[in-house]
Design a protein around this nucleic acid. Structure first.
Lengths: 142, 142
DNA sequence: GTAGATGCAAAGTCTTTGCATGTGT
DNA sequence: ACACATGCAAAGACTTTGCATCTAC
């Protein structure tokens, strides 16, 4: 999915092409970890793409509706972060010092979810998990 | 901890007493699950406590700094929620339909955290976990 | 009496919206 | 040509701040 061209991604979601939408997808594809809308705006500006902020919001809303991106809330950054949707969802270790986000290879929630569904009468459809601490680079300072 | 008087809680944290701080603690103590700042404000108003919104923000900031409350971000509500700090932290099942928050008895992260600390060179100091789905009451609608 | 807490109003930040204009198909 | 996307400016929601006044200790 991530290897498709931005144009193809748009077609795929039945979204009209536009310079702005393509540009945003291009920027998002270059990211290894989620970024804030602010950072996205910066990156867009750095690329001289010139996209109005309200347009960015509107495009992200469309991408979200079409399940092309994931929008979560990062507590250390105190803001939403965006990432292109991956084939299976990811969780991150977040460094409280340098703010780095390190993806965890596999979701550790599978067994837990199963257990909860059995114990409680609750149907799990999603979850959010973030782990905070200090990465290998910053560990020495703490 | 939750059984202490509001006054004692304040003393304990070396915070000056005030009608407003006591009132806020009283309201928070009555909650079984986290509430938004907006809801808190409503509850305060319902009790005729009359606390200015900016004062509420300032008091919550003080409570947070003194580790008396927990502030997390609830994605379904799209806003922060506040709760009095419990002896051990809690996680919630959140119903996507009725928004109910159901506490999970025990934190399922212990083993996972241990595993991560071993695998990755990362020191875990906190985590956030929320599980979304449909509660027993709403399960039939889905 | 003094440091710190509160109320009020104003400013800040982030996000959304209305409307005229521009663009993809 | 037409539906829909965008830019711009204005409005909205939520949160923070400055300052004068008040209150706990």
């Amino acid at each position: 999915m991530k290897s498709m061209s931005s144009r193809a991604l748009l077609d795929n979601a039945n979204l009209k092409y536009s310079r702005q939408r393509e540009g945003l997808l291009d920027v998002l594809k270059e990211q290894k970890t989620p970024i804030t809308i602010d950072q996205l705006d910066e990156l867009v500006r750095a690329k001289k793409l010139s996209i109005n902020l309200s347009t960015i919001y509107r495009i992200l809303e469309a991408f979200l509706k079409h399940d092309m991106i994931e929008k979560t809330f990062n507590i250390t950054m105190q803001s939403y972060v965006i990432e292109l949707k991956h084939s299976h969802h990811r969780h991150y270790l977040i460094c409280l010092d340098c703010q780095k986000m390190i993806p965890i290879q596999q979701c550790p929630m599978h067994d837990i979810v199963e257990h909860i569904e059995k114990e409680q009468n609750f149907h799990v459809s999603a979850h959010q998990l973030e782990i905070y601490g200090y990465c290998s680079d910053c560990i020495k300072n703490h």
